[in-house]
């Protein structure tokens, strides 16, 4: 049995088959992603052609009359997600710093486990808790809001409990564990030599922590964006506490709607094709936004890994030494 230069012998077909076989399945995954895009484009064509860009500027969502304006949904989605993120970010960062820098050793594992547990609770359970526990609590808060605040546009309207505030709170609670975990990984990846350098210069513990956060800032932004992406796509918990009212409102007390929520509520009731197309168009935009944000955040986190690469030390040109 002679060995060819490449070392292949009798079973020369096994490895190429292996490669092609597994590769074909791998391509399937790409196909699924593209397939989703294709489906969304295809099944929203009617609506896109009929309404064009005004779809996203119109406020009226009246399926019965055939009027489809999706502005309230994008408004509600962005409002709730941004608010949730503002609430969640400091808490998530605080947890990440605590777990990676301040936590006593014995507490680390159990706490990390609890954080993971929080992240694993299904959305529907958050929704259930939201309807029966959080919304009444928010209602109590709304009823007891001082009169001066209630006159501002942010706190106006009847105290229903369900509304933007409840939705933002639930979203914040849901986003915190995930963002905290990613941020913690980023902080853990800061090289020890950076901290040592800071300490050797006389830094206190907090100055060293600030340096670590500064070092990981790109990755942390990525983590926050990932959390944002999650919030944008969150469906069940939101639809159970936001009130499902397609209106553009500034008030935190007002019941509003989001893109994901309207899909959950009205998809099965879409009687005619145009209605369905309009809904799928909303799904299309949701898809594009979340994929864009996820892509951007992964890029940021990837870039963080790259800047950590050690610079080459062997130089052939003596000048710059």
């Amino acid at each position: 049995m002679a060995l060819s230069p490449t070392g292949r012998h009798r079973a020369g077909w096994a490895d190429p088959l292996f490669r092609v076989g597994t590769g074909a399945v791998a391509v399937l995954v790409i196909a699924v992603v593209l397939g989703i895009l294709v489906v969304l484009l295809n099944d929203s064509m009617l609506s896109v052609r009929k309404f064009g860009l005004s779809f996203w500027r119109t406020r009226t969502w009246d399926p019965v009359a055939g009027e489809f304006g999706a502005l309230p949904f994008i408004w509600g989605t962005l409002y709730s997600s941004v608010l949730a993120l503002l609430l969640a970010m400091p808490v998530a960062l605080g947890i990440a710093i605590f777990l990676s820098e301040l936590c006593p050793r014995w507490l680390r594992q159990p706490l990390a486990f609890l954080t993971e547990l929080l992240a694993a609770i299904p959305s529907i359970v958050y929704g259930l808790w939201g309807i029966f526990v959080l919304a009444p609590a928010v209602r109590w808060l709304e009823v007891h809001t001082p009169e001066a605040l209630r006159r501002t546009p942010f706190f106006s309207g009847p105290p229903l409990g369900v509304g933007m505030l409840a939705a933002a709170l639930v979203l914040a609670v849901m986003v915190i564990p995930f963002t905290a975990t990613v941020a913690r990984e980023i902080l853990k990846a800061v090289p020890v030599s950076q901290r040592e350098a800071a300490y050797a210069l006389g830094a206190t513990r907090w100055e060293a922590i600030r340096l670590a956060v500064h070092y990981g800032r790109i990755g942390i932004v990525g983590a926050v964006m990932l959390g944002f992406g999650r919030a944008l796509g969150e469906t069940m918990a939101v639809t159970m506490v936001i009130g499902n009212n397609p209106q553009v409102a500034l008030s935190l007390f007002a019941p509003q709607h989001t893109m994901a929520a309207v899909l959950a509520n009205e998809f099965t009731e879409a009687a005619d094709t145009l209605y369905l197309n309009a809904l799928v168009e909303i799904g299309l935009v949701l898809f594009i936004i979340t994929v864009a944000i996820n892509g951007l955040s992964r890029l940021l986190i990837w870039r963080m890994d790259r800047t950590r690469a050690r610079p080459t030390v062997i130089k052939t040109v003596p000048l710059a030494a």
Partner: peptide, 28 residues
């Protein structure tokens, strides 16, 4: 050249909202 593309696609798929995946399954 395929591997990074597949990994990227998998990451993207991970971030797609579950309701959108529902739409996909509905259509298919």
């Amino acid at each position: 050249r395929l591997a990074p593309a597949v990994r990227f696609a998998a990451d993207m798929l991970n971030g797609v909202p579950s309701i959108v995946i529902g739409i996909f399954a509905y259509a298919v």
